[in-house]
């Protein structure tokens, strides 16, 4: 008589009547002496009998062909190994990478330089409202969208060659320039303007794009 307990597959074979007579006799002798195997038979048989008797209700979709089981490509790939084997492969791969990384000499590369200047500012941008595009007369008012935390704005005016003509500071989200200043904007010329925002400490916090306007 087999001393070792029977596998779940063998137990299923017995329950489902797939065991040959000789093996069945041995198995029966065994479970007369083995409460563990007998308990396992009872548990598995209960499920098996429930499936046999209630199967038409449980697997209605499968029986009517509404649900079919075909292996997907991913499933086929996963099926190449068991979950335990996949776990072993992954662990080996991680170990391999760790060995490679540990063995690689530390190469000192040049530290990347990050800098902040007037053209490169992290944070918000300022959206300019007017003047933009073609203007009938030289503009007297420059407007942009207000930022929440900014204390002061500086408005820069450039000519078509990008030469700074003038700059003004204000705490408002607009700037009105005097007619005297306005005289330097002559018809038939193109100009650019830009706004920069500064915090209380004088730190540059936001910069707008340069916008162009043309006076007819």
């Amino acid at each position: 008589m087999k001393k070792k307990c029977y596998s779940s597959q063998e137990i299923d074979d017995y329950i489902m009547g797939r065991m040959d007579k000789e093996k069945r006799d041995h198995f029966e002798k065994h479970f007369f002496c083995c409460p563990r195997c007998f308990g396992e038979i009872q548990k598995r048989e209960e499920i098996f009998l429930a499936i046999k008797s209630e199967g038409q209700k449980i697997f209605r979709e499968e029986i009517q062909g509404k649900r079919s089981y075909q292996p997907s490509p991913l499933r086929k790939l996963l099926a190449l190994l068991t979950p335990k084997e996949w776990a072993a492969v992954c662990s080996s791969a991680v170990l391999f990478l760790m060995i490679i990384l540990a063995g690689t000499p530390h190469i000192k590369r040049e530290t990347p330089q990050f800098f902040l200047n007037e053209d490169t500012v992290r944070g918000e941008t300022i959206n300019l409202i007017s003047p933009i595009g073609e203007q009938k007369t030289p503009p007297l008012r420059f407007e942009w969208e207000k930022l929440d935390k900014t204390v002061e704005y500086t408005v820069y005016l450039f000519d078509s060659k990008n030469t700074l003509l003038s700059s003004w500071s204000t705490k408002n989200d607009y700037l009105e320039i005097s007619e005297k200043t306005n005289i330097m904007l002559s018809p038939g010329n193109e100009y650019h303007w830009q706004v920069k925002a500064f915090s209380t400490r004088g730190t540059l916090t936001a910069v707008s794009m340069k916008k162009q306007f043309f006076i007819r």
Partner: peptide
Amino acid sequence: AEKIAGLIKKLKPKYREILYLYYY
């Protein structure tokens, strides 16, 4: 048996399909 049937219906498809093909 009905209770077990109800529980089998709640199983994920990968377990249901195995029980369907193997036992049923």
